[in-house]
Design a protein around this nucleic acid. Structure first.
Length: 458
DNA sequence: TCTGGGGTCCTAGGACCC
DNA sequence: TCTGGGGTCCTAGGACCC
C-alpha cells in the first residue's frame, strides 16, 4: 500500500501557524509579483474564488469579505515543509517527497506484519496526522491505496468529505470502485485541462469511466505509455514505485530559476542582469545538492496576455557545454550570456526570463573529461585580449561565495553582471533595486529562518 | 494598470555510432 | 534495379503536476 499525505492549503496554513489571529478569517497567498491566488483558506474557497485566479480580478471580492492577503514567503514555506517531512520520515520505512506539501509513504508490508502492533493502516494514518499537527501546526489529510494514483484519489476525497475525518483507506475493491465513482475525470492525477475536455467529449465523465477504457484507447488518446499506466493504476495495478527521498531532501534531475519581471523590459542589459541573477541562484542550488550540470537552457518570454503580441510567446536556446560539466557560476554565465544574445530581438518587450540546468551528475569518478584542453567559452573568444574568464571551475571561489552568502544573507557577494545598468529615467528606485524585480507588498516575516524575524512571546 | 514558479516525463527529427 | 537495424545524444516543444 501507498500513502499520500498532503497538507491542507499549505501556504495559508504556514501563515496561520505564526499568526493565529488569521485562524477563522479568509486568507489568500499570492504568487510571485502578487499576480495570482495560489493558496486559499476554506472561507475563500467558499466564495468561489478558483485556484490561480488573477489577483486583480478578485481583489474587490476579497476586500468585501475582509480577507487577509499575503505575498508568498518561500523561506517560511520551505522550512515548514522540511519540518513536516521530518515528522513523517520518523514514522514510516520510506517516503518520497513529491512536492513542497506532499509526500508518498511506503506502507508495503506494514499491513501484514505491523498492523497487529500499530493497528490498521487508517489508524496509523490518523496517528501521523495528529503527530504532524502537534509538532508543526500544519493540518493534513491522508489517502491510502494500492497504487499512487488511487492514493492521490483517496486523498482528494479525504479532503472533500468531512465525515472521513481526514483519512481514506481504499483497502477493498468495493471501496475503490465507490471512490472512483465519486471523482470527476478532470480531477484524476495526470488528467489536465486538455485531456479532460477530450474525455468528456468522448462520454468519459468520472474516474470510474476512465478506469474502464481499453489500454489501446488510453495509449492512443492520453499521451502513449503515460495514459496506459494511468488507467492501469486506477484499476489497482501499480505501474510506478516509490522513489525514496534520502535524508529528507530532494535531489532534482533539473534545476531552474525564472521570474516574471515587475515591468516589461526592452533593454538588453536589464534582461542580462536578470538572467545572471537567476543563473547564480540556480548554480547555488546545484552546488547545494553537490552536482555538476552539462546542459544549460536560457529562455525569454513576451507577454502572452497582450493581444498585440503574437505567438510564439517564448523562445529558448539549449547548449550542451563544450567544456564539460560544471557548477561554476562564472563558467555557466559566459555561456548563458551568449545564449541570451542568440535569442534577443531588439525592440521587443520582454516579460519574463529563466534558466534551466540539466544533465546533472555527481562529481568524481564517472565524470566525462575533455580529451584536449577545454575549449574557450564564448566570453573568452569575445574578450580576447581582455581579462580571461576561466573555463575550468574554481571550487574554492564558489565555496567561499556560498559560505559568505549563507552567513550574511543571499546576494551579499555576487557577480557584477547581476547588477542592472543604471537607467537615465530610473530615479524611481534605489540602485540596489533591480529593474526586473516584481512586487511583494504583503510578505510575512521569515519566522523560522531569520534571527531578526523570530517571534517574541511575552 | 494588473495574469507564478519549479518541476517531471514524453515526443520527434536529425546527426551520429557500430 | 536494389540501400539495415539498433542504438545514443542533441535540441525544442508540449502536457501535466503542485
Amino acid at each position: 500500500m501507498f500513502g499520500l499525505v498532503d497538507a491542507n492549503n499549505f501556504y495559508v496554513s504556514c501563515e496561520r501557524v505564526f499568526q493565529p489571529r488569521y485562524e477563522k478569517r479568509a486568507v489568500v497567498v499570492l504568487s510571485n509579483n502578487d499576480g495570482n491566488v495560489v493558496s486559499r483558506s476554506a472561507e475563500v474557497k467558499a466564495l468561489g474564488i478558483p485556484m490561480g485566479a488573477p489577483y486583480f480580478e478578485v481583489k474587490e471580492l476579497l476586500k468585501a469579505h475582509n480577507a487577509a492577503v499575503f505575498s508568498s514567503n518561500y523561506a517560511l514555506y520551505g522550512s515548514m515543509s522540511a519540518r513536516v517531512m521530518y515528522c513523517l520520515a520518523q514514522r514510516v520505512p520510506a517516503l518520497e517527497i513529491y512536492s513542497i506539501d506532499e509526500a508518498f509513504l511506503d506502507l508495503h508490508g506494514l499491513e501484514q506484519h505491523l498492523t497487529p502492533y500499530l493497528g490498521r493502516l487508517d489508524e496509523l494514518a490518523q496517528t501521523l496526522r495528529a503527530d504532524v499537527k502537534r509538532r508543526t501546526g500544519i493540518p493534513t489529510c491522508v489517502g491510502v491505496a494500492p497504487t499512487k494514483t488511487l492514493a492521490k484519489l483517496a486523498n482528494r476525497l479525504a479532503k472533500k468529505l468531512p465525515e472521513l475525518d481526514g483519512v481514506l483507506y481504499l483497502d477493498t475493491t468495493e471501496r475503490q470502485a465507490w471512490a472512483l465513482r465519486q471523482v470527476a475525470v478532470g480531477d484524476v492525477w495526470g488528467i489536465g485541462r486538455q485531456y479532460a475536455a477530450k474525455l468528456t467529449a468522448a462520454g468519459i465523465d468520472s474516474a470510474s469511466d476512465l478506469a474502464r477504457v481499453s489500454e489501446a484507447w488510453a495509449r492512443k488518446h492520453l499521451g502513449g505509455v503515460v495514459g496506459a499506466r494511468l488507467v492501469q493504476e486506477l484499476q489497482g495495478q501499480p505501474c510506478t514505485g516509490l522513489h525514496p527521498s534520502e535524508d529528507g531532501t530532494l535531489d532534482r534531475q533539473s534545476i531552474s530559476c525564472s521570474r516574471t519581471f515587475g515591468r516589461p523590459l526592452t533593454e538588453y542589459s536589464n534582461v542580462l542582469a536578470a538572467v545572471a541573477t537567476f543563473l547564480s541562484r540556480a548554480a547555488e542550488k546545484l552546488r547545494a545538492q553537490e552536482d555538476l550540470a552539462h546542459v544549460l537552457t536560457v529562455y525569454i518570454s513576451k507577454n502572452r496576455f497582450d493581444p498585440h503580441v503574437l505567438p510564439p510567446y517564448s523562445r529558448s536556446a539549449t547548449l550542451t557545454l563544450p567544456s564539460g560539466p560544471t557548477n561554476d557560476t562564472t563558467v555557466l554565465l559566459s555561456y548563458a550570456s551568449s545564449l541570451l544574445r542568440r535569442l534577443w530581438e531588439t525592440g521587443t518587450s520582454y516579460h519574463k526570463a529563466g534558466v534551466v540546468l540539466d544533465g546533472l551528475e555527481a562529481p568524481g569518478n564517472g565524470q566525462q573529461l575533455t580529451l584536449f584542453s577545454p575549449s574557450p567559452t564564448p566570453a573568452q573568444r569575445e574578450n580576447k585580449g581582455e581579462k580571461e574568464i576561466a573555463t575550468t571551475s574554481r571550487p574554492a571561489l564558489m565555496a567561499s561565495l556560498d559560505a559568505l552568502n549563507q552567513r550574511f544573507g543571499r546576494g551579499t557577494v555576487r557577480l557584477a553582471t547581476t547588477l542592472s545598468a543604471p537607467t537615465n529615467s530610473g530615479s524611481a528606485g534605489s540602485p540596489s533595486r533591480p529593474a526586473w524585480e516584481g512586487k511583494a507588498q504583503w510578505r510575512s516575516p521569515a519566522f523560522t529562518t531569520r534571527l531578526e524575524d523570530l517571534l517574541l512571546v511575552n
